[in-house]
Nucleic acid binder design. Structure first.
Length: 476
RNA sequence: GCCAAGGUGGCAGAAUGGUUAAUGCGACGGACUGCAGAUCCGUUUCUUGGGGGUUCGAUUCCCUCCCUUGGCUCCA
């Protein structure tokens, strides 16, 4: 399989350092506000990466850090008079709930940065000892960019070119304007930890390297994140970790997910054009949202139009999922032991070829879009089988379902959805349907349509076909 | 100004050094249906941002220009 590596600016064959183990680290969010649709994109993508790697037999240890304390958390907490750590804790838990609703459950461990303060201090101490970082009189510590020769390799930036940059402010405490803070001297009233340089708290970049050095050692396989993090954050991570450990490269494969834009502009809390992730899940459901995200190349920008994007994704997803549902219904009702005809050898190898191709497609730098195109092709094929589906054995039906099972495993679509027709509705709706069937039988279509309309008003949708009436309650 | 990623049909968005450039959405017509829905058939549509080069052949590789977005010490 190949992965596009940002450092190499090319697709490279993937080879873990210690197969079959894979260390995967993805920059998580700073939980000072609710997650938005843009966050969902990259986290769903990396969830899919971990799912695919696991399917292929890799033992993935997926770590996603939580920046539970930084300037924004403190600022937001000050506005609401809340404790900063309690504020980020609350938002993080909400974020994890959203991720679970999205089926993004591949993460093994979400380390809070503040839990790793001892490791952070150790790493800073090592950098200072080596002369790569220096404390200042006020009790902060800065990393000396000039001491790291490869600074700029990941992002393509040159240090000289940074100087005219918009936000580099002259700071008398810094030896060079490009130096960045790794330990921030305490401000009264803010959370602080004791350190050799006085009370303070960690800088952003060093949190991740202290965590990954502790959990993975000086080198690991894959580091992911949004493309907006390449500079300065990931550039700084490389410099810090490689300086502190003396080993390189820190990361073998750098993966960056493209931005989600809102009508052409990056969705972000700073811009203020955010659309709540939970609202999107509420309105369209996790499968539609995952479909929307994965229906594009992960490195390309993806535009989100709240009026159109998810409605369009829903149409597409339903077309793809409908034949899967028809097969699943029978399996759910009769179980895999149901009797009937088996697939022919030719049909079986057809299914196997489809699944094999899906794996090959994903192995090409996680080409989820192409995999989805293939699933559409499979749905067209399954539609041809549907008229005779009642004659098929459970085993045959399971084979027809195999590409969808693949999608469930890797892309996270098609969650087992038996609940949709369960509960109180399951008892009541069939009675109503019988009444409607009698009305239709005697030609009273006005009554039949009235029942259909009234059910629809409660969220229950009906579809008539040759075998009877099917109902569904998407909101259930 | 510097760095990076994008630019493909009405829209979203793939792919490839080589037959008709996917897939989906939308629209239109038809079949089926009591109607609706679903499904099927057909139609609709791109010479792949502009220019130049390499090549027998490029949308794909190279150069250059333009545009959009992201980054340039807050960010998925």
């Amino acid at each position: 399989m190949t992965i596009y590596d940002t450092m190499a600016r090319a697709a490279r064959v993937f080879a873990p350092r210690v197969p079959p183990r894979v260390g995967l680290f993805v920059c998580g969010l700073t939980p000072y506000a609710d997650a938005h649709v843009g966050h969902g994109r990259s986290f769903v993508f990396f969830d899919t990466v971990a799912r695919a790697l696991r399917r292929w037999g890799y033992r993935v240890f997926y770590v996603q850090n939580v920046t539970d304390l930084d300037d924004k958390v403190i600022a937001r907490a000050a506005e609401t008079e809340a404790d900063p750590l309690a504020l980020s804790d609350r938002h993080f838990l909400a974020f994890v709930r959203s991720m679970h609703r999205l089926g993004a459950t591949a993460v093994n461990y979400y380390p809070y940065a503040t839990v790793y303060v001892p490791e952070i201090i150790d790493q800073i101490r090592e950098l200072v000892r080596r002369g790569d970082a220096y404390p200042t009189e006020d009790g902060s510590v800065y990393f000396s960019v000039a001491k790291y020769a490869n600074y700029g390799r990941l992002s393509g930036q040159k240090v000289e070119a940074l100087l005219p940059g918009a936000r580099l402010e002259a700071d008398p405490r810094k030896r060079a304007p490009e130096d960045f803070v790794i330990w921030k001297a305490a401000t009264p009233g803010e959370p602080e930890w004791e350190s050799p340089w006085g009370p303070g708290r960690p800088g952003w970049h060093i949190e991740d390297t202290a965590i990954t050095t502790r959990l993975f050692g000086p080198r690991y396989d894959i580091h992911g994140g949004g493309i907006d993090l390449i500079f300065p954050h990931h550039e700084a991570e490389v410099a810090l970790a490689e300086s502190a450990t003396g080993e390189a490269p820190l990361v073998n494969y750098w993966m960056h997910a493209g931005m989600l834009t809102m009508r052409g502009e990056k969705m972000s809390k700073s811009v203020g054009n955010v659309s709540s992730l939970d609202d999107a899940i509420d309105r369209f459901g996790a499968p539609v949202l995952r479909f929307f995200y994965l229906n594009s190349g992960y490195r390309s920008p993806l535009d989100f139009d709240p009026d159109r994007s998810l409605a369009e994704a829903r149409e597409g997803f339903e077309r793809m999922a409908r034949p899967a549902d028809r097969v699943w219904e029978l399996l759910e009702r009769d179980g895999p032991e149901r009797t009937g005809r088996a697939l022919t050898d030719g049909e079986e190898s057809e299914v196997e070829a489809v699944v094999e191709r899906l794996d090959e497609t994903m192995a090409n730098d996680f080409n989820t879009r192409e995999a989805i195109a293939q699933l559409f092709g499979w749905s067209r094929r399954v539609t041809e089988w549907l008229p005779q589906r009642n004659e098929l054995s459970g085993e045959a039906l399971e084979m027809l379902y195999a590409p969808y099972a693949w999608a469930q495993e890797v892309l996270g679509f098609f969650p087992p959805s038996s609940t949709a027709r369960a509960g109180a509705w399951a008892a009541v709706v069939p009675v109503v349907l019988q009444a409607r069937a009698r009305a239709r039988a005697r030609g009273d279509y006005a009554e039949a349509d009235r029942i259909r309309d009234e059910l629809k008003a409660t969220g229950v949708e009906l579809e008539d076909d040759a075998t009877g009436t099917r109902w569904s309650s998407p909101g259930a």
